[in-house]
Nucleic acid binder design. Structure first.
Lengths: 343, 343
DNA sequence: TTGTAAGCGTTATCAC
DNA sequence: GTGATAACGCTTACAA
């Protein structure tokens, strides 16, 4: 009836008393066990056990000026692709003894600035940001508080920020070229909402650039912007099919849009990729599992999270680190087809 | 060249000096603005602005003994369903001025205990746990540190813990009954890995119970346990199809398994739901969008997150709160079919 | 190897 | 309304 019924949380001094040592020794035993005599350490461990002692993080943080906490500011968790990256981040950090603090902003720059401040206020030792474009106050705060950070998912053209990410524009160009090489001329695109989302913008830009190089463009009725939802994809596809001539290749801004678009094609009796080549970005493994013929650009999002975590871990440990790394994306060609013969 | 180039983070005392008041007043102005004269408050706001002051959370937490932080311990973020709940949690908490600390344990009870301790150490004001079965030390720590908590996703039969969740077993029973009513007799199931996952177990139990009530069971070769992945679903279905007679109704433990199973059926030329009725738990909106005829049990996961957050917010504010609430689940019948006539 | 004691940046309790 | 000042629980020189 002792350890199991402690009713008020023990503090360091309690452990010290029980182990008959000073608080300094307990503190050392807890953070650098090799700095105390094994016998003492054992006694302390015993006392900790007995009292169910758990360190008070705030006090520890105040005194040591470190929290072993990393903050991540992401657009939303409501998208498997970011959840994935976050998951990898979390796992890697956890293995290194860090805790992840997640905040999302739903693509609103003001909110992003607010939550970033909240994280800094929480004393994060490092910060993972998504994308390169941020509210000026974000960079100001980071600078003022000297918080190590890394931009992810994108590459910083200015070279001013550490980053680890993908070249979305190049990926989009590859996607479009692939379709051009198959002989498509009639393109259309269902993009995600571009406001506050540089990745969506990059994808559109890349496609436009590749087409322009062939004297083509996303003409009127050939481009729609929809939220990243199934119904967004359905609606987008429906609208695109109203234009004449019908596009032979439709590029979707992400996997959810593509699946929605695919559903709409099925509903209308259009064969994919027979009547229409449908392609997109992000995973689509699920859609591809059910419907062959979906060519996609795959982003290694888990690797991204792991790398970002490692970058910060290394930096915080004073070890060398890559200031900037580009992760390769993969064009996964799954039975794309040439445009159907003109009727 | 003043506010924009501060190089070392300002502290409360700096603000106090600049505003010509004491630190006590600044502190008050920041936390209860109504307790200081408007003019003073204005001067302080001005100083804060000028110095780019951001409070030091650890110091604040140490002195006030609150962190305005809530911890959530979830199995994994690598599953849309939990990411969803987490997202809702986060949004609701953020609106109330709380920050979410997420930790996941990949279905390992030891890890769960470890990360829970980490969260308590971080000083979370409240804790969201998933499921009712936890390592004893989890409840011990919660008790010792008097951390308000709420169990989610499940209902606590013992009535000892505040909880807000679903009745997974009842949901599984409904699913099975639905198929029984359609006239199926040959059942099979692809479950998720049950170790460390009470939800997976509940679903299996529910199905077994409903079948037993009709004198049926998941006989040999009619039950497989696979990881929640597409290939898990494919393999599972492949194995189930080896048994003779072939099952006419296959229930999948979750949506990803169901989609994998569906892919396997497609690959083998089996029509769903013509040759085989395929059903499952969790969302499956995506699979259903592409393939009609998938009946599922839908769990309102976003509501769950929001409710859990509200529960803690109310408790921490000393307001009344529901100790326990069951959220209704929905059987979404999408073109289920009776078993094909025996050949 | 261990102990002493001075902070760490707030909040909160008093007086004024 | 506002100002001193003592906590808050831990880390970390510096001494011993």
């Amino acid at each position: 009836m002792k350890s199991s019924s402690q009713h008020k949380a023990a503090k360091l001094a309690d452990v010290a008393r029980l182990a008959r040592v000073s608080t300094a020794t307990v503190s050392r035993a807890l953070t650098r066990p090799d700095k105390v005599k094994p016998a003492t350490a054992a006694r302390i461990r015993q006392a900790v056990q007995e009292l169910g002692y758990v360190a008070h993080g705030a006090a520890r943080a105040l005194a040591s000026r470190r929290t072993r906490t990393i903050g991540a500011v992401i657009p939303t968790l409501d998208n498997a692709i970011f959840a994935n990256t976050t998951h990898a981040l979390q796992k890697t950090l956890d293995d290194a003894g860090y805790t992840l603090l997640v905040a999302s902003h739903e693509f609103d720059a003001e909110v992003e600035a607010r939550v970033t401040q909240a994280l800094i206020e929480r004393g994060v030792d490092g910060l993972v940001l998504l994308g390169t474009s941020h509210h000026p106050s974000v960079f100001r705060m980071i600078h003022t508080h000297q918080v190590p950070y890394v931009l992810t998912w994108a590459l910083d053209a200015s070279g001013r920020h550490p980053c680890i990410g993908f070249d979305s524009r190049a990926a989009a160009i590859r996607m479009a070229r692939h379709l051009l090489e198959l002989g498509h001329h009639e393109f259309a695109m269902v993009s995600g909402i571009m406001a506050g989302n540089e990745r969506a913008r990059d994808r559109v830009e890349g496609v436009r650039e590749a087409l322009a190089a062939h004297g083509l463009r996303l003409g009127p009725g050939r481009f729609v912007e929809k939220p990243y939802t199934l119904s967004g994809g359905r609606e987008g596809m429906r609208e695109l099919l109203e234009a004449a001539p019908r596009p032979t290749a439709v590029i979707c801004g992400n996997d959810v849009l593509a699946i929605g678009a695919l559903a709409e094609c099925h509903a209308l009796g259009l064969a994919v990729p027979g009547d229409l080549s449908l392609t997109g970005f992000d995973d689509m493994e699920i859609a591809a599992a059910i419907t062959p013929g979906l060519t996609t650009v795959h982003f290694p999002t888990a690797e991204l999270g792991a790398y970002a975590a490692q970058h910060l871990i290394a930096r915080l440990a004073g070890e060398p680190f890559e200031p900037c790394v580009e992760l390769p994306v993969e064009l996964v060609v799954r039975g794309s087809s040439a445009p159907p013969p003109k009727s």
